[in-house]
Amino acid sequence: MTEFKRLTIILGHYGCGKTNLSLNIALDLASRGESVTIADMDVVNPYFRTGDYKELLQSRGIRVAAPIFVSTNLDNPSLPAAMDTIFEPGDDHVVCDVGGDDAGAFALGRYSAKINSIEDKEICYVINRFRSLTSTPEECAQILREIESASRIRATAVINNSHLQGLTTTEDIISSVDFAEQTARLLGLPLKFTAVENRLINELNLPNLYGVKRIVKPPF
C-alpha cells in the first residue's frame, strides 16, 4: 500500500494528469477510512478541474476546497480565505491539486511559508513522457525549476504519470519508467511511484506501481 504524508502537493506541467492523480489519491485515502480534504488550487485552467468533481468527492466524505468561482463563467483567479486553513495543523490528509507550470504554481507561493514549516509533507512533481514539451528529463527539469521559482516550494519526490489516455499500452509504461528514473536522478529526487491505469496493472511486472482510474475526461 502506497503511503502518503499528511500533506501531499501535486505539481507539474499543464496537462500531465495532476487533477486525475489528485482525485485518485484523495479517493484512495478516503477508502482507507482516512479523513481527507482535497484542495483545487488551480487558478489558470478553465475546464477539467478538481472542483468539477465536487459531488463525487463529497459523496465519499472528502472535503473540497476550491476557488469561489470554479465551474462558473467567471474567469476570476481568486482563492477563498478558507484555503489558508488547510495548511493549519490537523488530522486530515490534505491533497493539493496545483495549476500547471509556473503560471499555475504561482498561487501556491502565497502559502509557501506555511507549507515550508510543515514537516509531514510531500511535494510531488508529476511527469508524463507522452505530454508534448516534457518528453526529455532536461525539459522536465527546466519546467520544475520554473515551478519552484514561482511557488517558492521545493519538490521532494517525482511521480511518473506517463500515459496516452485510453491508448496507453504496457510497452508505453515500461519505456516511461526508464525516463522517469533518469528524470528523478537528474533532479536528485526519489521516484515515488509510476501511476498506471487499473486495466493495465495486472499485465505489468514492475515494482512501485500505483493503480488509478480515468476520472477526468470529456462528457462523451
Binding site: G15, F130, R131, S132, S135, H163, Q165, L167
Partner: peptide, 14 residues
Amino acid sequence: ERFLMKGNEALAEA
C-alpha cells in the same frame, strides 16, 4: 511519435 496535446496546443503546433 504520438503525444498528448490539448486541442489549442495542437492547433498551434500544426
